[in-house]
Design a protein around this nucleic acid. Structure first.
Lengths: 144, 144
DNA sequence: TGAAAGACTGAAAATCATTATCAAGAGGCA
DNA sequence: TGCCTCTTGATAATGATTTTCAGTCTTTCA
């Protein structure tokens, strides 16, 4: 059902922009929604290729951009040189705890930190648009 | 004097590694130290080129890497596609308030946030190595 | 129905920032 | 002086991402 509303959002988005709902776009969205990991375009391309051998990677990059415009995906950068994408719809703002050993990323939210961030920006008279916070370390499983 | 100790640190670092203290390295360090902005390798290259027309950009990239190893510089990423470098020596850990309009970055530190970050990592049993926090918005000057 | 106008696509070329390669040029020291 | 190693600049290579382009598909509407 979440899946259903995201499809609908994408369909509405495309219609509004005068764009078409193609099989490639459907497929890429579907595979993107199917997993909760933070995938790179390349990783998603590999996944999608298994269902449609003829798909091009430029298409994956293009659709990912569309998904961001449609507020269904959001870019994240774990500092490993590749842009990653996460679900945005139904996922409120959050930050990340990233394990530098296994690459796993946990989504976290600390309301107290959020409040302090707003206060900090205000102290410098900044109009805050958005923010990112990445905590890098080793997850319990990787601590051996 | 800060400049003096940074030079000494770099000299000691090079000596310890069996590397040489060359004119190019001196020049790049000097120009890097001269400004407090968060420069990209390309920007620093343009600056340094004005004093030594023959310097190569690969050298700038290489020296910047050495400066990071020597703990004189630190990489930062404001999400604009280029790696930037800031002074590390004499600059304790801090986060950034970045103006998305003029590109200016203010270094900030909020001890309360730092404490909460450590607590957050602990809650998930992560061994925290380091963290980054970027607050993006519009600075007072750019607010019109 | 059928033709023109656009949107879409995959392949391949182009970019951009960064890194590696390589041959030539120094520095230090036996 | 000679040799070993470090350095350097130019250039080629890389990796991620974009753009280009020519061919396809849809939609529209006469």
């Amino acid at each position: 059902m979440t899946d259903h509303s995201e499809r609908k959002i994408f369909g509405d988005f495309l219609a509004e922009k005068g764009l078409r709902d193609t099989a490639q776009r459907e497929l890429i969205l579907e595979e993107f929604l199917r997993r909760e990991q933070h995938l790179t375009a390349e990783e998603l391309y590999d996944i999608v290729k298994q269902r449609d051998r003829t798909i091009g990677q430029a298409t994956v990059y293009r659709v990912l951009k569309l998904l961001c415009d449609a507020k269904l995906a959001r870019e994240v950068d774990f500092g490993d040189g590749a842009r990653r994408y996460e679900h945005e719809f139904g996922h409120e703002h959050h930050d990340h705890l990233v394990c530098t050993s296994c690459g796993k990323a946990i989504e976290v939210l600390d309301p107290a930190i959020e409040t302090l961030q707003r206060a900090l920006a205000e102290r410098y008279r900044f109009t805050l648009a958005n923010h990112e916070m990445y905590l890098y370390g080793t997850c319990p499983e990787c601590q051996g």
